[in-house]
């Protein structure tokens, strides 16, 4: 009979050492251990190896392995309002650009195109108005007033420039702004309103980001 332990026996002995055998297997193995010196010798070898390994000197870590935010790829969180403010600021900037460029185009437009531009844009378009507009517009406005003399007289009283000759109209328009010009200053403010709004919203977004970054640095000072 061959008494040298098989590899299955070695496996069982190793598991037995670690308490990983079922009670039945343990009882069976212990019975064999009592009668087989070769099996006992292998068990002793395994025990010695395990004991030595368990006493392997432990080294101290040569340094700390803690992670920095940079190593971990962390960035300060973006506050909830920042995207909204950024979009609103971009929109305001776009409106500023549109209004401003609309005004600029109006200013640069040839004089012949002025009658077409007579109905003024709702928002701004301030610089489009010129003396020509009023001189050409005057007859049109005056025409329906002709049939009735009383009306014409009233018109002449209230809006003397409309009834005047073109030369006088130019002179008057230069001297004293006509009625539509009363609305112009308000209309010309729009680009600046958009610009201020864009700056305000953009500034608020930057401020929120800065505050978040500061909180982040306080939390992770390394």
């Amino acid at each position: 009979m061959n008494n040298s332990p098989s590899f299955r026996d070695v496996e069982r002995l190793s598991a037995y050492l670690d308490g990983h055998l079922s009670p039945t297997e343990t009882a069976r193995l212990e019975a064999r251990l009592a009668s087989e010196p070769a099996l006992r010798a292998v068990l002793e070898d395994l025990r010695q190896a395990r004991t030595l390994l368990r006493h392997t000197p432990r080294r101290r870590a040569p340094r700390n392995f803690t992670l920095t935010p940079r190593m971990a790829g962390l960035r300060p969180p973006v506050p909830g309002g920042v995207p909204l403010l950024s979009w609103a600021s971009a929109l305001a900037a776009l409106l500023f650009f549109c209004t401003f460029s609309g005004n600029l185009i109006g200013q640069l437009a040839p004089r012949s195109a002025a009658p077409a531009a007579a109905p003024l844009p709702v928002m701004g378009g301030g610089p489009v108005e010129s003396a020509d507009v009023f001189t050409e517009a005057a007859p049109l406005l005056a025409a329906p007033a002709e049939p009735e003399a009383a009306d014409a007289a009233r018109l002449a009283e209230t809006t003397p420039t409309l009834a005047a000759t073109p030369e006088e109209t130019i002179f008057a328009a230069q001297e004293e702004p006509a009625q539509p010009q009363a609305k112009r200053p308000a209309a010309n403010l729009w680009p600046f309103v958009w610009l201020a709004l864009a700056a305000l919203l953009g500034g608020a977004a930057l401020l929120l980001r800065w505050a978040a970054r500061r909180r982040f640095r306080r939390k992770y000072p390394y």
């Binding site: 590899f7 496996e11 190793s14 010695q48 190896a49 390994l53």
Partner: peptide
């Protein structure tokens, strides 16, 4: 794991 551990322990014992 069981089988590799048993083999490893035996070999280590021989080596040690």
């Amino acid at each position: 794991v069981k089988s590799r551990l048993a083999r490893a322990r035996l070999r280590l014992r021989e080596c040690l």
